[in-house]
């Protein structure tokens, strides 16, 4: 593959990310994608020429602030669900490698249960089981739909993070444990000072992947009535009087928003994976 002559052995060279993405996709390619989608619908728009009707581009510009607002809401949901899921998932993952067999079994069961449940079903459970407000010591704490959605989405994230943590800890060579123990570190010290710092690098790429997937899954919240970008797009289409030629451009724009947000994350993940692949 590499025909270049080396003065030193290749194994001794510093690892360098090698681009194996033949297309070299950049975020701006998403712009091209959306432009193609819009241009493709123009003939249909002209087929029913009507001077009084706003053009697709006009409609899109008019509603863009609202759609962006909806999309930011999606991002807020994804960030908070990821934060909650990561913290609880890390605890659960450590439970999975606990020495106490009861804790280990329990953490294993919870992880498997939520990892193998459909996200939408968990979301429905969170939506309909939690009250819309609850009272503690005379204090009324409202529980709006978006907060319930965050909770519902953080459950599968928790289970996946738990598996990431367990996998990363178990993937470290056992020599690390043995060497540390021979230096008279306690189990807690080994875990927190030696094992986990090495795991962070291994966990980062799958964790970022999970975040990407979660972001794309936030549109599920539209099914349970959260006013995020998909719900708003449906309502915008209704406000435009059910013009069917708008359907593809509007949903393409949503697609474009998600692409432009998630694609850089995916690229960065690939870079990190490459960077961490050699050094162990």
């Amino acid at each position: 593959m590499n025909t270049q002559k080396h003065k030193i052995l290749p194994v001794m060279m510093a690892p360098r990310p090698r681009p194996d993405d033949r297309f070299h996709l950049q975020p701006w390619h998403g712009l091209v994608l959306v432009a193609v989608c819009i241009i493709a619908t123009i003939p249909a728009a002209f087929a029913a020429t009507d001077p009084e009707r706003a053009s697709i581009l006009e409609v899109l510009t008019r509603w863009m602030p609202l759609m962006l607002k909806g999309f930011i809401f999606n991002i807020v949901i994804s960030v908070l669900a990821m934060a909650v899921g990561t913290i609880s998932g890390a605890a659960l993952g450590l439970g999975q490698i606990s020495l106490n067999p009861f804790v280990r079994k329990f953490a294993w069961f919870v992880t498997q249960f939520f990892r193998n449940a459909p996200w939408l079903v968990l979301l429905f459970f969170a939506m309909f089981l939690l009250p819309f407000e609850f009272k503690i010591f005379g204090l009324t704490i409202p529980l709006p739909d978006w907060l319930k959605a965050i909770f519902g989405l953080s459950l599968p994230v928790m289970a996946n993070v738990s598996e990431i943590v367990r996998g990363a800890v178990q993937s470290l060579p056992s020599g690390q444990w043995e060497a540390a123990e021979s230096l008279a570190f306690s189990r807690n010290q080994v875990l927190w000072r030696i094992i986990l710092p090495q795991c962070v690098k291994r966990m980062l790429p799958p964790w970022m992947n999970l975040y990407s997937i979660l972001t794309m899954a936030t549109v599920l919240a539209s099914i349970v009535g959260v006013s995020e970008v998909m719900t708003l797009t449906g309502q915008i289409l209704a406000a435009e009087g059910g013009r069917s030629d708008l359907l593809i451009p509007m949903y393409s724009f949503v697609l474009f928003l998600f692409f432009i947000y998630c694609y850089p994350i995916a690229r960065w993940t690939v870079r990190l994976e490459k960077k961490f692949a050699v050094i162990t």
Binding site: L66, Q235, A238, A239
Partner: peptide
């Protein structure tokens, strides 16, 4: 309703 023009629908500000 937010999808039933003209009885209840959204304007561009949301």
């Amino acid at each position: 309703k937010a999808d039933y023009k003209p009885y209840g629908f959204r304007d561009t500000s949301g």
